[in-house]
Amino acid sequence: MSYVAYVFRSYFGVTAEEAERLMLQVHNTGRAVVATGNREAMERHVEAMHGYGLWATLARADS
């Protein structure tokens, strides 16, 4: 779990508190929205998470 928080801090640049909150959300519910943006940027984020050994997907946000 500390590794996931580390990845969120180092890659996304979130605070330690935000990284911990997101990590706990993933741990407890199986998912968290870590980033939003255009499709190309989100695909790069997904690839980066896979590079860190984490499972990540992208989904269209509900309008």
Rank of each mutant, 00 (worst) to 15 (best):
S2W: 05
V4Y: 03
A5E: 09
V7A: 05
F8D: 04
F8A: 06
F8I: 09
S10R: 15
Y11D: 02
Y11A: 03
F12M: 04
G13S: 03
V14Y: 02
V14F: 00
T15V: 02
T15L: 02
T15G: 02
E17L: 07
E18P: 00
E18W: 02
A19N: 00
A19R: 00
A19M: 00
E20F: 11
E20G: 04
R21I: 02
R21C: 04
R21Y: 03
M23I: 02
L24R: 07
L24M: 13
L24Y: 08
Q25F: 09
V26I: 11
V26M: 09
H27K: 11
N28Y: 07
T29L: 09
T29W: 04
T29D: 15
R31K: 12
A32D: 15
V33K: 12
V33H: 03
V34H: 08
V34M: 11
T36Q: 11
T36F: 10
T36M: 12
N38V: 10
R39N: 10
R39D: 06
E40T: 09
E40A: 11
M42A: 07
M42F: 05
H45D: 14
E47C: 13
E47T: 15
A48N: 11
M49G: 01
H50M: 09
H50Q: 10
G51M: 05
G51K: 09
G51R: 13
Y52I: 04
G53K: 01
L54P: 00
W55L: 15
W55Q: 11
A56C: 14
L58I: 08
R60H: 12
A61M: 07
D62A: 11
D62N: 08
D62K: 12
S63V: 09
